[in-house]
């Protein structure tokens, strides 16, 4: 037992160092392409750290969203940036040569270092024993309708946060529509490997999404992870050159994107009519309502993430 904990400790230290090294090289490597690749590896190593911290729900979300979709977004954007990757480091180096900049740099770095030290100092003043809200969650979990405590917090105890969070995602989509970039029009249809991969993987990803959604009430998983996997499937299809028909992109798309927030509004307001509080599910149907909410949220999240990737207002004839 002793050696096992020691081994684990060594593993944790190594993971931590690996994370720091990947972050450092991602933020300072000369090549932006390499930086993005390192960022994705960073995300994957983060998932490993989450597993070690007994947070499988986050590990899934991190792998799908943090590493997967953010990585895809970064890659796609990088491909469309006019500048080559090394220009920024050159500019940085020339800026550093300016007289006095050295001193400023030294000052800034030592301030940052002192800041880090103070954080670490403060950590030792935290109460040694911490249970947070674990007991509160444990007492009420029977009335929450789901058995996975993380899902219970996300969709029941703090469901209001999740509602606002769906709106954040929606706000990003509206914002992307405003900037109104041209869609990615690369001729990737001629890549048979990618095509085969997409046609093989997409059904699997849809199945994985459904599984994550279903298991989320009891085990690790839930709407965000499932939505992210669904989004990843969509991104894969988009990469393979698949473009949805315009008719599909119009109002059906818009209604589906709004499905999650709309379902939330509906479920939130309904209890008010019978004198209960906002988002207060009737105890016996809490489980069903949460599952319905999760299905709606999954579809919304998946589609929104896809649309964000497509970088375009994917709903009308405004753009070519």
């Amino acid at each position: 037992m002793e050696t096992l904990t020691e081994l684990q400790w060594i593993f944790d230290v190594l993971t931590g160092c690996g994370l720091l090294w990947l972050a450092w090289s991602c933020l300072s490597s000369r090549n932006l392409h390499r930086a993005v690749v390192q960022f994705v590896s960073f995300g994957l190593l983060m998932s490993l750290a989450w597993v070690r911290l007994e947070a499988p729900d986050i590990a899934l979300a991190e792998a799908a969203i943090g590493a997967g979709l953010t990585g895809a977004l970064l890659m796609a954007s990088l491909a469309r940036l006019p500048l080559s990757g090394s220009a920024d480091i050159r500019a940085l180096k020339s800026a550093e040569r300016i007289a006095g900049a050295r001193l400023l740099q030294l000052l800034r770095n030592s301030l940052l270092f002192a800041f880090a030290l103070f954080i670490i100092y403060a950590i030792f003043f935290l109460p040694p024993e911490f249970s947070g809200l674990r007991e509160e969650v444990a007492t009420e979990i029977e009335n929450a309708g789901v058995r996975n405590p993380v899902t219970a917090v996300l969709l029941n105890f703090r469901g209001y946060d999740t509602f606002l969070e769906l709106l954040v995602l929606l706000g990003a989509l509206f914002g992307v529509r405003i900037v109104g970039m041209q869609p990615v029009r690369t001729s990737m249809t001629s890549e048979p490997v990618l095509n085969i991969l997409a046609s093989l993987l997409t059904p699997i990803l849809i199945l994985v999404a459904a599984y994550l959604l279903w298991i989320g009430t009891d085990g690790a998983g839930g709407a965000f992870q499932a939505g992210a996997v669904l989004g990843a499937g969509g991104v894969l299809l988009l990469l393979a050159g698949w473009r949805p028909a315009r008719a599909l992109m119009a109002s059906p798309f818009r209604s589906l994107v709004l499905l999650g927030p709309l379902a939330f509004v509906f479920v939130a307001v309904l209890p008010l009519l019978s004198g209960r509080a906002l988002l207060q599910y009737p105890p016996d149907s809490a489980g069903t309502l949460i599952v319905l909410l999760e299905i709606a949220a999954t579809l919304s999240i998946g589609l929104t993430l896809c649309a964000l990737f497509l970088n375009v207002s994917a709903d009308d004839g405004e753009q070519p």
């Binding site: 911290l53 007994e54 947070a55 729900d57 986050i58 979300a61 991190e62 969203i65 943090g66 979709l69 953010t70 977004l73 970064l74 954007s77 911490f130 249970s131 947070g132 809200l133 674990r134 969650v137 405590p149 993380v150 219970a152 917090v153 996300l154 703090r158 946060d161 999740t162 969070e165 954040v168 995602l169 706000g171 990003a172 914002g175 992307v176 900037v179 970039m181 839930g222 965000f224 999240i301 993430l305 964000l308 990737f309 970088n311």
Partner: peptide
């Protein structure tokens, strides 16, 4: 483990990807 921090982090990750998408655009 206390589930609340985990739920908060999942919310945070989604917020982060939304902000990143907007920033990239």
């Amino acid at each position: 483990p206390d589930p609340v921090p985990q739920a908060l982090v999942i919310t945070g990750i989604v917020v982060a990807v939304a902000a990143t998408a907007l920033a990239l655009n």
